[in-house]
């Protein structure tokens, strides 16, 4: 069931490793000349001509509070996470519940590349060339039973390997959830790689969710449990502050976060003088996903 969704961004849009190293040097030069504003504008013009962020942007600017709340903390601290062996428990309303080893999952799934926009609730964004498989394929393998309505996810909780969990920034372990139709949507994927390389720990190794039309915090990292349920599962940020973070958390430029506007975003990697760019409805995936929310008040179901 792989390849059900066709990228509008192609491999040609992804910057090859060697080329983006050059690009960085060019940008470094531009920076010195104070031309970075122009570079930032070129970057934000056309959605179809999106340039994926560099490997450095993607792997050194992360929110993964289990490894610290600073943006560079995960890159610094996440090396301690043991990702081999790794087991994912799939349970709840499935025909084949059990412990699935990462190797088992990788054998059964077809890995493909998806270049997606990534929009954080904090109003910054990136473009990321993910490698992974559709979550629908994994759920189909587990056999979703009739009557199931939601899918719950849980991140590993390892105090010995995660310095950030010593303080209750959130109620650990991190948990997230999707409606079943959102989870089965062809855009929804499990990422196991970036730029064709194994996904780094700070990005959620060995397997993390990617839901490109929702704010980044929905895309839970380092998953150890997937539970198919009938009831809406609790989600970490909603538990922490329900007024600010709803269950749906679809990217929506018209519904502000109570503490900041969501109308525009800062593209990571543009430097000091980059222009903000307007945020797109459903992060630019309106054609693909708007039908999931037909008749719903998106302001009430934020």
């Amino acid at each position: 069931m792989a390849h059900r969704w066709k990228n509008t961004l192609t491999r040609a849009d992804a910057t090859p490793m060697a080329a983006y190293m050059n690009r960085r040097q060019i940008m470094g030069g531009a920076l010195g000349l104070g031309l970075i504003g122009a570079a930032g504008m070129a970057r934000s013009q056309d959605a179809d001509a999106l340039v994926p962020n560099s490997w450095e942007d993607i792997t050194q600017y992360n929110n993964f509070y289990e490894f610290g709340t600073g943006k560079s903390d995960p890159a610094r601290n996440a090396h301690t996470l043991t990702t081999e062996p790794w087991t994912v428990v799939i349970d709840g309303m499935v025909d084949n519940p059990g412990d699935y080893s990462m190797a088992q999952i990788m054998d059964a799934m077809t890995i493909e590349e998806r270049i997606y926009r990534f929009r954080c609730v904090e109003a910054w964004s990136m473009v990321i060339p993910w490698n992974g498989f559709e979550l629908a394929d994994l759920l189909t393998m587990a056999g979703v039973q009739d009557g199931a309505k939601y899918v719950a996810f849980e991140t590993a909780l390892r105090p010995d390997e995660m310095p950030g969990v010593r303080f209750p920034v959130l109620d650990w372990p991190y948990v997230e959830g999707l409606r079943l139709d959102e989870a089965m949507h062809p855009l929804t994927m499990m990422a196991t790689g970036i730029y064709g390389k194994t996904i780094p720990n700070q990005n959620g190794a060995p397997m993390r969710l990617v839901v490109p039309w929702k704010y980044g915090f929905k895309s839970i990292k380092s998953i150890v449990r997937i539970t198919v349920t009938e009831d809406e599962p609790p989600t970490s940020w909603n538990k922490s502050n329900g007024r600010e973070y709803g269950f749906y958390s679809n990217v929506n430029p018209e519904v502000d976060h109570p503490r900041w506007s969501q109308a525009s975003e800062r593209v990571v990697g543009g430097g000091l003088f980059a222009k903000r760019q307007p945020t797109l409805m459903f992060n630019g995936y309106e054609d693909e996903v708007a039908s999931l929310y037909e008749g719903m008040d998106l302001r009430a179901n934020y």
Binding site: L31, G32, E56, D57, Q60, Y61, K71, S72, W124, R266, V268, G269, G271, L272, A274
Partner: peptide
């Protein structure tokens, strides 16, 4: 630091 990457990949918020 903001111009040379010392403040991370997104220097505006950091600064």
């Amino acid at each position: 630091m903001a111009q040379t990457g010392g403040l991370g990949r997104e220097p505006v918020k950091a600064l």
